[in-house]
Design a protein around this nucleic acid. Structure first.
Lengths: 102, 102
DNA sequence: CCCACACATTCCTTGTCGGTTATATTACCG
DNA sequence: CGGTAATATAACCGACAAGGAATGTGTGGG
């Protein structure tokens, strides 16, 4: 059972989520957008399903996938103690540049 | 050249960053905390170095590693469109507070 | 000097991941 | 019913990542 971090390590899986963020999609819809074969797409969707990042519902012959973003909270939570650390540095650089003579 | 996401997919590498968040550490310090052999630690530290997530400075025979959190901004940026999606309507207040500037 | 300590690197092995091709399943439609 | 479209699964393969053991490097101490 891979972690959410491991699932998100795959660029195309992140892209799939980005597409699904705009709304429900069938597998073929996703295949038309994300550069991956249909079986490959099914495999990625299976990983995303088992990670709880997408949900699926049947619609006639198609299966419509939709985003299920709850597991992203884990990533967000891990990242939180670091939040602001990189912006602090940028702010410090800005202040430093402001203080520099032309 | 692995992406930041791929680097963070390794649980021990996240743990290394968590330890370094408390301050500079030598390799031996990290080996004493993170369950990995010394060569394994050096290898993980190399990955983190090449990803720009840690920096190193020499101190006598030791090498002191410190956190360099800038690449985490990439993860934060990807996650941002999803922020608030995983919280329920009951957490609307918290979401609102999250979105408030500090 | 040479030794010892701290760390890095190499080599090898192994397991896992992602891709492709081919095949199975499932649901609809005529 | 039979056929077809949509999706899933299976079987196979190449690439790569991680671990361990042994070795290399380099810096400071006696």
């Amino acid at each position: 059972m891979p972690t959410t971090f491991e699932v998100l390590a795959e660029p195309r899986r992140r892209q799939i989520l980005d597409v699904l963020r705009t709304g429900e999609c069938s597998v073929n819809d996703l295949v038309a957008i994300v550069p991956v074969s249909q079986p490959g797409m099914s495999k990625h969707l299976k990983v995303l399903r088992e990670a709880g990042l997408v949900q699926v519902r049947q619609d006639a012959q198609r299966r419509l996938y939709r985003l299920s973003p709850e597991p992203l909270a884990e990533v967000h939570a891990w990242l939180e103690p670091y939040r602001g650390m990189w912006t602090d540095r940028l702010d410090a650089l800005e202040r430093h540049l402001d203080e520099m003579p032309d």
